Amino acid sequence: MEKMGLIKTRFEGLKLFSVGKVRDIYDLDTHLLIVATDRISAFDVVMREPIPDKGKILTQMSAFWFKKMEDIVGNHLVSTDPADYPSQCEPYRKDLEGRSMLVRKASPLPVECIVRGYLSGSGWQDYRMKKAVSGIRLPDGLKESSKLAEPIFTPTTKAPEGEHDSPITRKETEDILGVENTGKIIEISLAIYKRASKIADQAGIIIADTKMEFGLVDGELILIDELLTPDSSRFWPKADYVEGRPQKSFDKQFLRDYLLSLSWNQKPPAPQLPDAIIMKTREKYEEALKRLVT
């Protein structure tokens, strides 16, 4: 285990393409190099302290799920082995080992694709106010963490860094992406969620919801970014599931809950995280990896 964690990378000789909440991305001409740091964000604010090994866990989990879904849809992953990377990456092999992906360049679709199988988070809040999520009417009488009769597709906008994504309806998604592409991503997203849920169920994990991103390469629709990680999904221990209350989790909901206990306005600067919160968050990510992948 890395004790300190990797907060940022700056590789001389490589062209920095973008810096996200978690990932540093480098432009390698025909490909991108995605490096998952150990940064963690909550409420769209990046914490000051890293979660050791988090980037390695995210990379391993994404690679696992990309492989599992290849017959449903292609993805951008070329390799996670630095030995396969272009020669200009060689000086940074140690930093890249275990936490990086060489990927195909894609044109990202400007919509976050969220599938919900259970009512939690913002979906639960929307249901309480409107009995609907992203314009989809749901039955009366549902509770927090209720399992839905069928998973639903609840897209959001892709907001600029530091701003919140906004829920949109299917019609609004069609206005952005077109009817054909919208239909495709809904079908693919639901198929991925259903397959992943079956795999996770065997590992004692409920996938309450998950976020996916798609892009186009030469007109081909593919998965990009990450897939079914604790950063992009709610993972609940099946053995502890009880409808009608918040659930224990293997994701960063533990960190969110801690932050909600503070008198913090959810704007930068982030509060300092105690060592116990950092290590407990890491343990939850690691537990999800062990159950699902190893």
Rank of each mutant, 00 (worst) to 15 (best):
K3A: 13
I7Y: 14
T9S: 15
R10K: 14
R10T: 00
F11G: 06
L16V: 03
G20D: 03
V22F: 01
R23Q: 06
D27S: 08
T30C: 11
H31E: 07
H31F: 15
L32F: 15
I34F: 10
A36P: 01
A36K: 02
I40Q: 11
A42E: 10
V46H: 08
K56A: 10
A63I: 00
W65Y: 06
W65S: 07
K67S: 13
K68E: 15
V73W: 02
V73R: 11
H76G: 00
L77R: 03
D81T: 05
A83F: 11
A83C: 07
D84N: 14
Y85I: 04
C89K: 10
C89L: 06
C89R: 07
P91E: 04
K94S: 12
E97H: 10
G98L: 07
G98Q: 12
L102K: 04
K105C: 08
A106H: 01
S107D: 14
L109T: 05
Y118F: 15
Y118K: 02
L119K: 08
S120I: 06
S120P: 00
S120R: 01
G123M: 00
W124Y: 12
Y127H: 03
Y127G: 01
R128I: 13
K130I: 04
A132Y: 06
G135M: 04
P139E: 10
D140R: 10
G141K: 07
L142N: 03
A149C: 02
P151S: 03
P151D: 03
P151I: 00
P151Q: 08
T156Q: 04
T157A: 04
A159S: 02
P160S: 01
E163S: 05
E163L: 12
D165T: 01
S166Q: 15
D175F: 01
D175V: 04
E180Q: 13
N181T: 13
N181M: 15
G183M: 03
G183I: 03
K184L: 13
L190H: 01
I192C: 09
Y193Q: 09
K194W: 05
S197H: 09
Q202N: 11
Q202P: 00
G204F: 09
K211A: 02
M212C: 01
E213R: 02
G215A: 08
L221G: 04
I224V: 13
D225E: 08
P230A: 08
D231H: 01
S232A: 08
S233H: 04
K238A: 15
D240T: 12
D240L: 15
G244V: 06
G244H: 11
R245W: 10
S249V: 03
S249F: 10
F250Y: 15
D251P: 09
L255D: 08
R256M: 00
L260G: 04
S261H: 11
L262N: 01
W264T: 02
N265T: 11
Q266K: 15
K267Q: 14
K267G: 03
P269R: 12
Q272L: 13
Q272S: 14
D275F: 08
K280W: 01
E283A: 14
A288W: 02
L289V: 06
K290I: 07
R291N: 09
T294L: 12
